[in-house]
Write a protein that binds this DNA or RNA. Structure first.
Length: 492
RNA sequence: GCCCCCGUCGUCUAGCGGCCUAGGACGUCGCCCUCUCACGGCGGUAACGCCGGUUCAAAUCCGGUCGGGGGUACCA
C-alpha cells in the first residue's frame, strides 16, 4: 500500500490544568496513530502559557498518563528534540518576535478600542455580526504615535483578508467561512502577553507541524489560524500551512461534552480502577473510528496499520462505560495468566491482599490460584476481590454478612457445613479431585441436595462470599487445616 | 440574532446508488452450559429525524425543514 504521506509531523499540545481528560487521550491517540501509520513524527508540546492555572501536578499526571498508555512521543518533554523548547512558557521571545514582524509587515495593527466602544458602535449600526468591527484597521502612523504617546492601551489584531477561507477538513471535507463573519482578532493582551490565537500557530509553524488533528471545538477558529498562517509565511516564520482535521466530541450524559465533573472523564481513574491501557485505548478508538464492519477488538499495532484519518466519523460520540468495560475485559482475557498476574500485583499490594514485598509462599500460592481467576476478571482490581480469602490473616477472615445470613446461619446451611466438615476430615489426599468426590458424595448423594444448594454454604463458609473461584480448587489451595477451621467456625 | 459543524438500533458504529426485507459490537431479554461468579454458545429486541427533488433504483446524491452541538472574548 502506498497511502503513506511522507514527512508527517503531528502534535498534541495539552494545557497542564487539572486532571487529564479522556478526550485528551482520544485526541492524542488519533494523532499518535496517524504519525505512526505514516512513519511520521509525534510531537508533544506543553501549552502552559496560563500561569495561573498551570500546575506541575497536572503536567506530571499527563506525562505519567502518556507513558502508561504507551503513546510515546518523538519530540517533547524528557526527550527534547530539534524544535524545542517544548514548553510555551520558555518560548516568549519567539512570540514577541513574531508579533513584531506581523506588526511591521502590516498583517497586524494596534487597536485602541475598549469593549464598551465596540459594543456601542455595534448597537448603533445594528450589525448582526458580533465581535470587533475593524475600527482601528486603518489608523495612520501619526494617530497611532499620538495614542501611544498619550499612554492609551492597545492590543495587536490580525488583519483578516477579504473574501472567504476554505480548507479541506480531513474528517469533514470542505469547510468555508466568509471572512466578514470572522472579525480581526487579538493576538496578545494589552500587557503584551501573547494569546493562544498567536502562540498555538506560531509554535506549530516553528515545529513544522503538517497536520493538526484536534477537537471540533476549535473548528470555528480555524479560518483565523489559516489567515495567520498566510501572514506567518509572508514574514518568514511558517514554511507551510498545515492540514486540519477536526475530531468529534466525546459526550457524557445528555448531549453535553464529557465534563471534568463526570467521573468517566478522568483518564487516570481508569488505571486506578484496573483497566489495562490496551482496553481503554481500543475503546476510545471506537469513538469515531472503526477498524472493520464486523470487528471491534484490536491492538494498537493493528490500529496503526489500519488507521486513516479520512475514515474518522464526524459525529459526536457518547462515552459508554459499560462498553468500555467490555472492551477492556476482552483485552484482559487476551493476556497470558503470567501477564495478568504481573499487572495485578500492584493492585493486590495496594489493596492489602498481599504484603509488599510478597513472601515466597504467597507468591507461589498466587501463581497456583491465578489460572482460576484470570478468565473471570474484567479489570485487574477484581483479582484481589476473588483471591483475598486465600491470603487474609485468620484473625481478619470474616463472612459477608448478607451471604452468611442467607446461606450459613440456616438449619440447612448448618447441616451442610457439618456434613462437609465430616467428609473433608477424611479427604486423602487433599486435592481438588478428592475434595470434589467427598463433597459430591456427602452432600449430593447422601443428603440428596441439588449441587447449587449443596455448595453455597460451603463456599460462603470457606471463602467468605457467595462469589469465588471454583470451589474444589479454592479449597485445595486453602489447605486442609484452614478449610476445616473455617467450616468449624461457621458452625454454631 | 449571526456563522459553522453534526443527524443510521438505547449506545458506539458498518454503509460511500442496486450486494440492505440495513451488518457488527455493547446493553437488554430468553435459552443452553454450570458448584457460585464469570467465560463460552444459541436465539430475540431495536435504527436510516421529516419533506421534497434527481434516478430505472437513495440510508447513500441535491435542496429545504426540524433537532442537537459549537463559535461569536484582551479563554483555550
Amino acid at each position: 500500500m502506498s497511502d503513506k504521506i511522507p514527512g508527517v509531523r503531528v502534535r498534541m499540545a495539552p494545557s497542564p490544568t487539572g486532571s487529564p481528560h479522556v478526550g485528551l487521550v482520544r485526541t492524542a491517540l488519533f494523532n499518535w496513530a496517524f504519525a505512526r501509520h505514516h512513519g511520521g513524527t509525534f510531537v508533544f508540546r506543553i501549552e502552559d502559557t496560563d500561569k495561573e492555572r498551570s500546575t506541575d501536578e497536572s503536567l506530571n499526571a499527563i506525562i505519567d498518563l502518556m507513558h502508561w498508555l504507551g503513546l510515546e512521543w518523538d519530540e517533547g518533554p524528557e526527550v527534547g528534540g530539534p524544535h524545542g523548547p517544548y514548553f510555551q512558557s520558555q518560548r516568549s521571545e519567539l512570540y514577541a518576535d513574531a508579533l513584531a514582524r506581523l506588526l511591521e509587515a502590516g498583517h497586524a495593527y494596534p487597536c485602541f478600542c475598549t469593549n464598551e466602544e465596540v459594543e456601542a458602535r455595534r448597537k448603533e449600526s445594528g450589525s448582526k455580526v458580533m465581535g470587533y468591527d475593524g475600527f482601528c484597521r486603518n489608523l495612520d502612523a501619526e494617530t497611532i504615535a499620538t495614542y501611544n504617546a498619550e499612554g492609551r492601551a492597545s492590543v495587536p489584531r490580525l488583519r483578516m483578508p477579504d473574501g472567504s477561507i476554505t480548507w479541506n477538513d480531513l474528517v469533514r471535507g470542505e469547510v468555508t467561512f466568509e471572512t466578514r463573519f470572522v472579525p480581526d482578532y487579538a493576538l496578545a493582551r494589552a500587557n503584551g502577553d501573547p494569546l493562544y490565537t498567536l502562540v498555538n500557530p506560531v509554535d506549530d509553524a516553528y515545529m513544522e507541524i503538517t497536520h493538526v488533528l484536534r477537537g471540533e471545538d476549535l473548528l470555528s477558529s480555524t479560518p483565523r489560524q489559516i489567515a495567520l498562517y498566510a501572514a506567518l509565511r509572508d514574514v518568514g516564520i511558517a514554511k507551510l500551512t498545515p492540514e486540519f482535521g477536526h475530531l468529534p466530541y466525546v459526550l457524557g450524559e445528555g448531549n453535553k461534552k464529557l465534563s471534568k465533573r463526570d467521573p468517566e472523564a478522568h483518564a487516570l481513574a481508569y488505571r486506578e480502577q484496573g483497566f489495562v491501557p490496551e482496553g481503554l485505548l481500543n475503546y476510545l478508538a471506537l469513538l469515531g473510528w472503526a477498524i472493520a464492519a464486523d470487528r471491534d477488538i484490536f491492538s494498537l499495532e493493528e490500529m496503526v496499520e489500519a488507521f486513516d484519518i479520512k475514515d474518522v466519523n464526524p459525529n459526536p460520540a457518547r462515552f459508554d462505560l459499560k462498553k468500555c468495560e467490555a472492551i477492556n475485559a476482552a483485552h484482559v482475557h487476551r493476556l497470558s495468566v503470567e501477564e495478568i498476574t504481573d499487572r495485578a500485583l500492584p493492585f493486590l499490594k495496594r489493596d492489602g491482599v498481599l504484603t509488599d514485598p510478597v513472601s515466597p509462599a504467597d507468591q507461589q500460592l498466587l501463581e497456583l490460584a491465578m489460572p482460576f481467576v484470570a478468565e473471570r476478571v474484567n479489570k485487574l482490581t477484581e483479582v484481589g476481590e476473588l483471591l483475598r480469602f486465600l491470603f487474609i490473616a485468620d484473625a481478619d477472615f470474616a463472612l459477608d454478612a448478607a451471604d452468611r445470613a442467607k446461606l450459613v446461619d440456616t438449619d440447612e446451611g448448618q447441616a451442610v457445613i457439618q456434613a462437609a466438615y465430616d467428609a473433608l476430615l477424611r479427604a486423602e489426599p487433599w486435592s481438588a479431585a478428592r475434595i470434589s468426590d467427598m463433597l459430591q458424595h456427602a452432600l449430593v448423594e447422601e443428603m440428596g441436595l441439588k449441587p447449587r444448594v449443596a455448595f453455597g454454604p460451603v463456599r460462603v463458609a470457606t471463602t467468605g462470599k457467595r462469589v469465588s473461584p471454583p470451589l474444589y480448587e479454592s479449597l485445595e489451595l486453602l489447605g486442609r487445616e484452614r478449610t476445616l477451621a473455617r467450616l468449624q467456625s461457621a458452625l454454631g
